[in-house]
């Protein structure tokens, strides 16, 4: 389904990834574990097409997205969804506008239905008219997930989505998000530094060590 091959990334002078390979099966939830500065986020952002690398190729569903370090498909055309660490909800838009941002081409009616069903999925019915700053951190992250899922991406990338939440809410949210992703059978990659979180969330775990990926 997704395969990343021969990825090499360096920060300034020092190389953090060299000949990194990764493949994820359809419907799987994969956790990429690593210390800070290990290049895990950069790898994720390379898959998204947001960041450049010295070398590396990405194939998704048989299509070449990046070849030998050159992005051949722009981020906006990759059909990949992303959930950010600090949610990145648009502060000037309501929850409805945020979630429907990726499906604006649909009719008003189908947008309303879609948003309502997504809100039901994340157990936050009826908050369409609220602004992000009126929500708690956990609620914002759920909305952010709903937004990423709205246009049914082929792959969902989660960049430390739980790290800015407090412990008690975090465990609950990790479980909820996992069950949502499983229900929708979305192929996903989670990036985290927390091993317990990775175990609770993912089907498979890979760890970055010595610039390479090791699967346990």
């Amino acid at each position: 389904m997704l395969s990343v091959s021969n990825l090499s990334i360096s920060f300034d002078e020092s190389q953090v990834l060299e000949g990194f390979n990764l493949s994820v099966e359809s419907g799987d939830i994969f956790a990429l574990l690593g210390d800070s500065g290990s290049g895990k986020s950069s790898a994720l952002r390379f898959i998204a097409g947001l960041e450049n690398a010295m070398n590396g190729s990405v194939v998704l569903d048989g299509a070449d997205l990046s070849l030998n370090g050159v992005h051949s498909v722009k981020p906006e055309l990759r059909e990949i969804g992303m959930v950010f660490q600090d949610y990145a909800l648009f502060p000037h838009m309501t929850v409805f506008q945020n979630i429907s941002f990726g499906i604006d081409h649909l009719s008003k009616k189908s947008k309303t239905e879609k948003v309502a069903s997504l809100l039901e999925l994340i157990s936050l019915k009826g908050i369409e008219k609220k602004y992000p700053h009126q929500l708690s951190g956990g609620e914002q992250q759920r909305v952010s997930l709903a937004r990423a899922l709205a246009n049914s991406p082929k792959l969902l990338l989660l960049d430390e989505p739980f790290s800015s939440l407090d412990k008690s809410h975090r465990d609950e949210l990790v479980k909820d998000v996992r069950s949502i992703l499983k229900k929708q059978s979305v192929t996903s990659i989670l990036v985290t530094h927390d091993e317990a979180e990775a175990k609770a969330f993912a089907d498979k775990i890979g760890k970055i060590e010595k610039k390479q990926l090791f699967i346990n």
Partner: peptide, 10 residues
Amino acid sequence: QMIEAGKMLG
């Protein structure tokens, strides 16, 4: 991230 989120939403 605002812009990246926009991009990732197509």
